[in-house]
Design a protein around this nucleic acid. Structure first.
Lengths: 211, 211
DNA sequence: CTGATTTCGTGAATTGTAGCACGAAGTTTC
DNA sequence: GAAACTTCGTGCTACAATTCACGAAATCAG
């Protein structure tokens, strides 16, 4: 039976973790895996994996499990990873440069096609494969590559105005490293990378341990 | 009435966001704020904020709202942010160095007391206030500063063994930037920073937009 | 070929989270 | 100082997510 329900966002967020684990398994030469075993690797229950996948079809075989390569292909197609996604990166400070140099993006279908900063002393510098450009060039680059995905790594004080610029130029999804909540239209997706908040949530538990 | 329920983890994860917003409000000179207004700033409903806070006490005043400074102090105390937390950072690649140089940690009560790498050419180099040290010095530094919080920014292939070392030396909470799920004892807290997974969950929606 | 075993997919039950809505307590207006 | 407002804290309800548990389908052992 095909499911017709819309998959909840929590499920969508787990799919990339399944995909990554399957990539590692493929590298290890594992051909097939059960929901049980996969779950142990990523600390998720077997039932959850089976239910999550059931939103998209039937990919497993009773008594056997899942064919690693096939399931990976399915999940990548579901996530739209069967083609490359052009991404612009705004903010070329230490963090922005580290992001620009990280091969993990390029390897996983995310191609940084533009790196921007306002600092005139930085503009023109080469960072990995990218040259740092002025904000003024952003709309043209976004148009040229049909970019819909952006990463913001500018100081908090500038993040909102950068987001506004990006959205005006056609960006529909933003990954924001700046420690501030962005106000955006309903049809724009925003997610946050917030290490300080994450650490602060852990200090809560550490503070309560009997030491 | 005092609540006796254990606050769920989702609530604990939101507290740092409330705290941050209150810090901004304090800087802006705002003295008092309603749950409604605070909610609008961080895209959370007013009821949720009130309910979250009710796990810890009664901090507001009917008809008025919350005293910004007082509420911030309360939340910081709840999160254990009334004192500094020593942190070790393992992995001094581009990302690790960017993290080490980010002032946001130091400003928010997180003090990096050790920066480690295995690369002999890096050891001894200065990165911001920290010198890159060999793994061999980790246990001593962790012991000396009573470190319980660590950040891992090494390649995925080494993350698990680094986590094992850290835990053995006394670390109880880990923020992991490596794209791999760590296997740890139940009494160790682990959280992940995973920008590729986050971007991949957004490509799902982008791939489905009528273009 | 039969019985034991494995593992999937999924409805049902359980657990967890968020939001509503209202009494209470405070402020503001005139 | 009374009436209109504002806003909190929270019991209750509705919604969402997770886990259980079982029939079905496949494999394996002898």
């Amino acid at each position: 039976m095909e499911r017709l329900d819309v998959p909840p966002d929590v499920v969508i967020r787990r799919l990339p973790l399944y995909a990554r684990s399957l990539r590692y398994l493929l590298d290890e030469g594992v051909l097939s895996i059960s929901s049980q075993e996969l779950g142990e690797r990523i600390n998720v229950t077997a039932a959850q994996i089976r239910k999550d996948l059931s939103y998209f079809g039937e990919f497993g075989k009773q008594g056997i499990g899942y064919d690693v390569e096939k399931l990976l292909t399915h999940i990548e197609r579901i996530l739209g990873l069967n083609h490359r996604w052009p991404v612009v990166l705004v903010g070329a400070g230490y963090l922005g440069q580290a992001i620009a140099r990280y091969e993990g993006f390029q390897k996983q279908g995310l191609q940084i096609v533009g790196l921007f900063d306002t600092d005139p002393t930085k503009i023109g510098q080469q960072v990995g494969d990218n040259e740092i450009r002025d904000y003024a060039e952003m709309p043209a680059i976004i148009e040229k590559h049909q970019v819909r995905l952006a990463i913001i790594s500018v100081p908090a004080a500038h993040a909102q105005s950068v987001a506004d610029l990006l959205i005006k130029a056609g960006v529909r999804a933003i990954l924001n490293y700046a420690p501030i909540i962005l106000q955006t239209p309903d049809d724009v997706w925003v997610r946050y990378i917030d290490p300080v908040a994450v650490l602060h949530s852990m200090t809560y538990y550490l503070a309560r341990e009997q030491s």
